[in-house]
């Protein structure tokens, strides 16, 4: 999996690509925790290039999301492929996360 880190306005952006599963969850978790420690608590995870997520990936995102909120920030998701969206729907986590169609929308939403 490829992990690209960018800045977008007041957001730190994590762009993932490929298969986001138990094997890849740890580096993403490490990155998210590091951001929170740096007080960069407004994060967008761009899943445009991700074709597969599993529950470990979901747990990682949930953990990051909670940390950001505890620090008065937020973690937004954008650009989900259909199979990935299905998994969010299956676990109903689509109800818990703020999910946007594009990174642009995620970065400007209030």
């Amino acid at each position: 999996m490829e992990i690209v880190k960018q800045e977008n306005g007041s957001f730190s952006v994590l762009k993932l690509k490929g298969r986001f599963d138990a094997h890849e969850a740890e580096p993403v978790n490490t990155w998210l925790q590091a951001q929170v420690e740096k007080q960069c608590v407004n994060i967008i995870v761009n899943l445009e290039g991700v074709n597969f997520v599993d529950s470990t990936a979901l747990s990682t995102l949930v953990r990051g999301y909670k940390k950001c909120r505890e620090n008065n920030g937020t973690l937004r998701l954008c650009s989900l492929q259909q199979p990935v969206r299905v998994i969010f729907e299956l676990t109903r986590l689509d109800k818990a996360f703020d999910i946007f169609e594009t990174e642009e929308e995620a970065s400007v939403a209030i």
């Binding site: 529950s55 979901l58 999301y65 299956l90 676990t91 109903r92 109800k95």
Partner: peptide, 12 residues
């Protein structure tokens, strides 16, 4: 399935 609003970190 865990309740999404509980933001459970496992059990999925």
């Amino acid at each position: 399935m865990p309740n999404p609003m509980d933001l459970a970190e496992g059990g999925y």
